[in-house]
């Protein structure tokens, strides 16, 4: 040292811990550490979701009817063969596409518009934000009942408004018209689902650094150019992931349909998820219901993987 006499003002020197307390044990506990944290979630998910899923998939190959004491045997692919010729199922498949993409399109566009509106500062924004997000908190079956009520020409205002707007000749309940019935649950679903998109997109919007817009406006970009050159590219990843997750979620979401139309009239609003429900709990045929569910799961997985592959291909093409 360079001749400097250090003055020690320290009083107690900490206890020197014992040397090498098992190299091995610390290495192992270091590797295991993350698993201590995730184990409760893992146990729960495996026990309450994964095991039932596997059990459920096995039902698809068995004859399981609750009220029939002789059921329970393996039937191989019989359910799937029946399914191929089940016109109600094929109809439900088409309806599912309608229901999903009809709801999704409006939920997304209106959610995006709402997020953009809320992303500007204005008087009363906090209050407005709280109010417009409220539908998300309403129990779905309650909103289903309420919307069914509002579509009813005797007790609801909607048919009368549509007549005044000239969309309808005389007030009638669209929920009982096989051609239009699907729009009932879709409207309810749009109402319920806008907040989800608005919240996620608003969060994404707020994470765009403000300097980007400043830089762009200095470069002479007008509002529209800024929207397409900054906002949309920044939102793209959020949009892609939420659209995908939401598609799957809506395809599985039968509550509103079960409450509002029970799949009717004449199966015109029967989607696959509600069809499963009908098979399982009206006909008590769990084997067949599980077979349908398995097909739906496979279709949704294929859809998800397809979207992911497409995205990957597109980002690779870009770069």
């Amino acid at each position: 040292m360079d001749g400097e006499q250090a003055v020690n003002t320290m009083t107690d020197v900490g206890n020197r811990p014992a040397a090498r307390r098992g190299v091995f044990s610390r290495r192992v506990s270091g590797i295991l550490e993350p698993y201590y944290y995730v184990s409760p979630a893992l146990v729960l998910i495996v026990a309450v979701m994964l095991m039932p899923l596997i059990l459920g998939l096995s039902y698809a190959f068995r004859d399981i009817r609750i009220l029939n004491p002789f059921s329970g045997g393996f039937v191989g692919l019989a359910h799937f063969q029946t399914l191929m010729h089940d016109s109600a199922f094929l109809g439900a498949l088409v309806n599912t596409a309608w229901w999903t993409f009809g709801s999704l399109f409006f939920q997304f566009t209106l959610g995006l518009v709402l997020a953009l509106l809320l992303n500007r500062h204005f008087v009363g924004r906090r209050l407005v934000q709280a109010l417009v997000f409220l539908p998300w908190a309403v129990p779905t079956f309650l909103s289903g009942l309420n919307w069914a009520w509002m579509f009813n020409p005797v007790v609801g205002p909607l048919p009368h408004w549509m007549v005044s707007l000239g969309i309808m000749e005389t007030p009638f309940n669209i929920l009982s018209d096989p051609d239009l019935a699907m729009w009932g649950p879709i409207v309810a679903n749009i109402w319920f689902g806008i907040p989800f998109f608005a919240i996620t997109l608003l969060a994404a919007l707020q994470s765009i650094p403000g300097e980007l817009y400043e830089a762009a406006s200095i470069d002479g970009a007008n509002t529209r150019q800024q929207f397409f050159s900054i906002t949309i590219p920044f939102l793209a990843p959020t949009i892609a992931i939420t659209l995908m997750l939401r598609t799957i979620w809506i395809a599985n979401f039968a509550d509103l349909i079960v409450v509002m139309t029970k799949g009717g009239p004449a199966d015109s609003t029967q989607i696959v998820a509600s069809y499963i429900f009908t098979q399982a709990f009206r006909r008590l045929d769990f084997g067949y219901a599980s077979a349908i569910a398995a097909v739906l799961l496979v279709l949704l997985l294929a859809y998800a993987l397809g979207v992911i592959a497409l995205r990957r291909a597109m980002t690779h093409a870009d770069s």
Binding site: R16, P17, R20, R21, R26
Partner: peptide, 24 residues
């Protein structure tokens, strides 16, 4: 950070496998 190989000692004690809180 873990030490991939080698030794670090403080005050003559190898502390490779001590938690940060025990290294004083």
């Amino acid at each position: 950070e873990d030490i991939t190989s080698g030794d670090i000692s403080i005050g003559g004690t190898v502390i490779n496998d001590l938690q940060p809180k025990d290294r004083d």
